[in-house]
């Protein structure tokens, strides 16, 4: 039997198409950027999709967890990836949509001991954890020890509250915070794809704005 082989576009064709949409200067800036995503759940997996589609040159993906059936309602994984590490599953999914984005994966839990080494090469760091104390740990660590990095964090996106309350605030020169600031998963009881994606989109969009030198929130 004959097999139909579908060839994907070349790297040159890929970047030409992106440059046509974003402009060459912006696309060069996206292509030269390295962005770290800390946590690959509802926020991180959606941030990664948006940034890969925009043609970010390199993503550093960090998570210790595996895909679980309870993740599929809001995270960018597939039913046949249950049990696979999130780093591996997301790498595969990103490769299918943006084959020329370089992906570095670390299947570890980020801690005060390894964070600097893991994040050293990133220009911009996205905090995309689920747990409030982990969020605070990473934000304090980056601001204290890596003040030269841009940091885009998130707090408050649970529940069925209005989409319009999700915002981006510029807290200080290189620190941005997305979310409504208050909707806790414990009090709201749930996370839904649409509202988590809004917050992830705010984070990804803030990354792209930083790279286009538009620094206001």
């Amino acid at each position: 039997m004959w097999e139909v082989v579908k060839l994907i576009p070349t790297k040159e064709e890929w970047y030409a198409a992106l440059s046509e949409r974003h402009g060459e200067k912006i696309q060069n800036s996206f292509g030269a950027a390295t962005v770290a995503i800390c946590g690959l759940g509802g926020l991180g997996s959606n941030i990664a999709f948006a940034l890969a589609r925009a043609g970010i040159g390199k993503l550093i993906l960090i998570d210790f967890d595996s895909v679980d059936i309870t993740n599929l309602h809001r995270q960018q994984y597939k039913a046949n990836q249950i049990g696979v590490s999130k780093t591996q599953a997301l790498k595969e999914n990103l490769f299918e949509i943006a084959p020329y984005t370089a992906i570095e994966t670390h299947n570890v839990r980020i801690s005060e001991d390894n964070a600097e080494e893991l994040l050293e090469k990133a220009d911009i760091i996205c905090e995309a954890f689920d747990d409030a104390e982990c969020k605070a740990m990473l934000v304090n660590l980056v601001l204290e020890r890596m003040p030269e990095k841009y940091l885009v964090a998130a707090s408050g996106m649970a529940g069925f509250g209005s989409a319009n309350t999700i915002q981006t605030r510029r807290i200080s020169k290189r620190f941005y915070l997305c979310g409504d600031g208050t909707s806790d998963v414990q009090s709201e009881g749930s996370l839904v794809a649409s509202r988590v994606m809004l917050c992830a989109a705010h984070q990804a969009h803030t990354v792209l704005r930083i790279l286009t030198e538009q620094f206001e929130a």
Binding site: G39, G41, G42, L43, G44, A128, F129, D130, D131, A132, E133, K135, A136, V139, A153, A154, S155, G156, M157, A158, I171, S172, L177, G181, T182, S183, D184, V185, Q186, E188, L191, V196
Partner: peptide
């Protein structure tokens, strides 16, 4: 002073 307070969910 800006106090940023984190809640769970992500």
């Amino acid at each position: 002073i800006e106090i940023v307070s984190f809640v769970g969910g992500g």
